[in-house]
Write a protein that binds this DNA or RNA. Structure first.
Length: 276
DNA sequence: GTTAATACCTGTTCGC
DNA sequence: TGCGAACAGGTATTAA
């Protein structure tokens, strides 16, 4: 599932083959993703040189020389793959194709079609409805205990649900929420308002740690995520609790076992011995 | 206004 | 073995 580390991995994988290249052909083969692909996508991107590829939360922003920005979200099952030349055939879920002046082919493939593509002028990025309400970037220098504590203030919801709220912290999904809470030894069903300043500092550090280490190994390849090169990510081998029900808790000195519960219709994995 | 539940979608896994 | 049900989950929408 593409959360922040997977999206960042994709962004980094797209930079070498795309940055500075000209898009010679853009083809939307299936327009009905979570929201319709803008009908003028090809017209506004073809002939344009890619000037920057950024990330905000789980969104990728591709800037072109005209000043337009393509916004991309991978949803749950989306992947971007690059091949050096034209493939023999396209997959039925290859929804958008980009061909560069170097001849490489970028494919946006998304079987479940929870992903989306939008297009806007660069001046409209900050005010875009999907971007304007996002919370702080957890890997920014400014994200720390006080920052997290401020974001959690007044949230009358379990801390796990608060971490999934993109207006609280941007980019955390179901896997890394469980991982960070276990690393910080905070119970997922605690009310967000009950998290102390010291705990918020611990949790902010745990979030940074988990995300940074996941990016370093290319993210988690659960069912869908691969890097643009086709390589897998390997962080799933380092999961502490996610999808490890019954396994020993990895916290040093803790003798608990990983348990699973459902919060807001989502699986949460945790240890009820060391997570308090 | 805030929070919880549901819909969207399809490939995979599970149980009978 | 084969079938259908359940499950996975990010975000928008609807309900409470």
């Amino acid at each position: 599932m593409p959360e922040l580390p997977e999206v960042e991995t994709v962004r980094r994988g797209l930079m070498p083959p795309l940055l500075g290249r000209r898009l010679v052909r853009v083809e939307a083969r299936r327009p009905d993703l979570r929201r319709p692909i803008p009908p003028d996508l090809a017209a506004r991107l073809e002939g344009q040189r890619v000037t920057a590829i950024d990330r905000r939360a789980k969104y990728i922003l591709m800037w072109v020389e005209s000043g337009d920005v393509m916004l991309l979200h991978l949803g749950m099952s989306g992947r971007m793959t690059i091949t050096p030349g034209l493939p023999n055939s396209y997959d039925r879920h290859d929804h958008v194709i980009f061909i560069t002046d170097a001849g490489s082919v970028l494919r946006f493939n998304d079987p479940r079609r929870f992903g989306l593509i939008d297009l806007m002028a660069g001046s409209a990025v900050a005010g875009h409805p999907l971007l304007r309400d996002l919370g702080p970037e957890p890997l920014d220098d400014g994200f720390d205990g006080p920052c997290l504590a401020a974001a959690l203030a007044g949230k009358r919801t379990p801390i796990k649900a608060a971490l999934l709220d993109q207006t609280v912290v941007a980019g955390i999904g179901n896997i890394y929420a469980s991982e960070a809470l276990n690393l910080a030894c905070i119970a997922p069903d605690r009310q967000a308002t009950s998290v102390t300043r010291a705990e918020a500092a611990r949790l902010a550090a745990a979030i940074k740690d988990v995300l940074t280490r996941a990016i370093a190994v290319g993210g988690s390849s659960l069912r869908d995520h691969v890097q643009p090169s086709g390589e897998l990510g390997y962080f799933q081998h380092q999961w502490r609790v996610y999808d490890r029900e019954g396994a020993p808790c990895p916290t040093p000195g803790c003798r608990g076992l990983v348990k699973r519960m459902v919060q807001s219709n989502r699986s949460t994995f945790y240890c009820d011995v060391c997570q308090r």
